[in-house]
Design a protein around this nucleic acid. Structure first.
Lengths: 154, 154
DNA sequence: TGCCAATCGGAACGAATCAGTCCGATTGGA
DNA sequence: TCCAATCGGACTGATTCGTTCCGATTGGCA
């Protein structure tokens, strides 16, 4: 029940990119230098985030990357899914794979998609713009789940 | 961003135990037979859940386990934390460990505890009693994050 | 128009964690 | 006092993750 290091790095890197949005075109090297993430790892992340459509990359001399969308419309869920793949707490969430021995008889399975949605919603409620705000924001440290839920967009 | 298999199994097993709460004293063998979880794994889970205080175990002949608390007061978060340890999305959530190279300069870190609380709240909002209800509960498949947030207890 | 430099994209290696299995220690009843 | 059944912890194998490296592609410049 934790974020992978790559996803963690991706959030930090996207946050850094958001602060330079529109001003300067970043590349994997500058992002690595600014965030402290090892260069090869930063390159890998840029690749994945570009494939997912969160970053726009231009190749060649003087190329680089920039946010494909405004920071407010990029959520933590987007970043996590871009790096780790779809958010699914259990394998029985998607109807395609049938690996669980219980399957139809399982009493828990019908509730899992709801739990999955709730967790994903918690991540979708936080945008890059939120992460770029002042760290000393009052109440941020004691953010309650209820208030987080209220911030879920439509 | 997924539950470990052990945590997944633990939820299924606790749900099975909840259905027999008060009626019959379960043990690792019967729980294994009922859920389809391999016996050694079920034993391991019983051990961890007992240590965490979610199950009460009695040893010796005719011994077994039973829920330590009513199903309504045992949440998914309790079970997950009993098996996987504390829920923390990133290592920088707890103030004790300082492994991140950014630390104080990190713009993202102050928000992470809030995100962590939101995700944990989503899991804390679901109790064992909820999982034992009828699977065909209306709307369960389309539970929205917003409605999940509203169900978060104080 | 050809060359060069800088970048992204994918593939391979090593390490760490996790899932699963087994055996010993403890306890209650006969 | 002995026996049987159970929980508790330690070990091994496999999978996944994180990191690193190299090749393919592209745009600028002479």
């Amino acid at each position: 029940m934790r974020l992978s290091s790559l996803a963690d790095y991706a959030v930090v890197m996207m946050s850094a990119a958001a602060r330079h949005c529109g001003l300067a075109k970043m590349n994997a090297t500058t992002l690595s230098a600014e965030t402290g993430i090892p260069l090869p790892t930063a390159q890998k992340l840029v690749s994945r985030l570009s494939t997912a459509g969160l970053l726009e990359s231009s190749r060649g001399t003087g190329g680089g990357v920039r946010l494909a969308r405004p920071p407010a419309s990029i959520s933590l869920a987007d970043i996590v899914e871009a790096v780790e793949g779809p958010i699914r707490m259990t394998t029985c969430v998607d109807a395609e794979r049938h690996e669980c021995a219980l399957e139809g008889a399982c009493q828990v399975r019908p509730h899992m998609s709801a739990v999955n949605g709730a967790v994903r919603g918690a991540l979708a409620a936080v945008s890059l713009a939120d992460l770029s705000r002042a760290p000393a924001q009052a109440g941020a440290q004691n953010w309650t789940p209820a208030s987080a839920g209220e911030q879920v967009p439509a």
